[in-house]
Simulated scan of single mutants.
Amino acid sequence: MKIGVIVDSFRLPLREAIKKAKEVGAEGIQIYAVSGEMAPENLTPSKRKELLNYIKDNGLVVSALVGDFGGHGFAIKEDNPKRIEASKRIMDLAKDLEANVVTTHIGVIPSDPNHDRYKILQEACEQLGEYGDNVGAYFAIETGPEKTETLKKFLDSLKSRSVAVNYDPANLVMVTGDDPVKGVYTLKGYIVHTHAKDGIMKKQTDPEIIYNFFAEGGIGDLRLEDYFEEVPLGKGQVDFKAYLAALRDIGYDGFLTIEREVGENPEKDIKEAVEFLKGMLK
């Protein structure tokens, strides 16, 4: 397995963040590609080549792109034509940067396959999966809003093999209360990328409430810190020894990409996370 980092976690300009990723000992990087200079419409073929060369000159590869548009993902039918087209362009960009994974949250998958939203999400993922089949890219759903068994049944219902999983163990322990080790075996065969993140659940609630909070920019007097907390690797409820053993057991040899969404000193936390993972992988 290889160690990566989401360069946006450094909270620095892109090229500075790429340099930092190299400095802290990462082998690969993941980049948000939905807006600003990384939006596909802002990157001409020559700019793409220039960026790829810069990444390679720093001894790195692109592990994946983040194609997360926020909101309710692909759960609102009227929004989907535009989001699907934009996601296809991000898949094209990934291929130009010699990567083949785009990760995103698609919205909360209902446990009942007869739910209206289930069919809306299926239709969107079928279109993106078919495109992925054609261009050789994975559209990877990030774990978190639903139990891994629900996600597995959803993936099994699709015709395309290009709709896959970006496995985030912390989201499972923080929000869903799912066992991230058991979940690896549940989603065996679908995991194409992972996020290395840790956290603790303080209080269980319906994951849909949490993800609606993110989607709508806050709801009433809900305080997320009452429910969960993201913490540095090894300080939370993810049993990394057992988790990494499970990934090895299913034959996963891709990236463990560090994501640090909080904290006052992300560079320090990311550097320590790299060292933590190197120690665990020995």
Rank of each mutant, 00 (worst) to 15 (best):
A196D: 05
A196Q: 11
K197D: 01
K197I: 01
K197E: 04
D198G: 08
G199F: 01
G199M: 00
G199P: 04
G199C: 02
I200W: 07
I200F: 04
I200C: 11
I200E: 06
I200H: 06
M201A: 11
M201L: 14
K202G: 06
K202T: 14
K203Y: 11
K203Q: 12
K203F: 15
Q204K: 15
Q204P: 15
Q204V: 13
Q204F: 14
Q204L: 13
T205P: 07
T205E: 11
D206T: 10
P207Y: 13
P207H: 09
E208Q: 15
I209W: 10
I209T: 15
I210E: 02
I210R: 06
Y211M: 01
Y211N: 03
Y211F: 05
N212G: 03
N212F: 04
N212E: 11
N212Y: 00
F213Y: 13
F213Q: 11
F213A: 08
F214M: 02
F214G: 03
F214C: 03
A215L: 04
E216M: 00
G217R: 12
G217H: 08
G217I: 09
G217S: 04
G218W: 06
I219W: 03
I219F: 04
I219P: 01
I219Q: 12
I219T: 10
G220Q: 01
G220P: 10
G220K: 06
D221E: 14
D221F: 11
D221M: 07
D221S: 15
R223D: 15
R223N: 15
L224E: 09
L224C: 07
L224S: 13
L224Y: 10
L224K: 08
E225R: 15
E225G: 10
D226N: 15
D226T: 13
D226P: 01
Y227Q: 01
F228G: 09
F228R: 07
F228A: 01
F228P: 00
F228L: 11
F228D: 09
E229C: 12
E229V: 12
E229K: 13
V231C: 04
P232E: 05
G234Y: 01
G234I: 03
G234K: 05
G234M: 10
G234P: 02
G234Q: 09
G234C: 07
K235L: 13
K235R: 13
K235P: 14
G236W: 01
G236I: 01
G236P: 06
G236T: 09
G236V: 06
G236C: 10
Q237G: 12
V238F: 02
V238C: 05
D239M: 09
D239I: 09
D239C: 00
F240I: 09
K241C: 04
A242D: 13
A242F: 08
A242H: 13
A242C: 11
Y243C: 04
Y243N: 04
L244A: 07
L244F: 14
L244W: 07
A245R: 11
A246C: 02
L247W: 05
D249I: 05
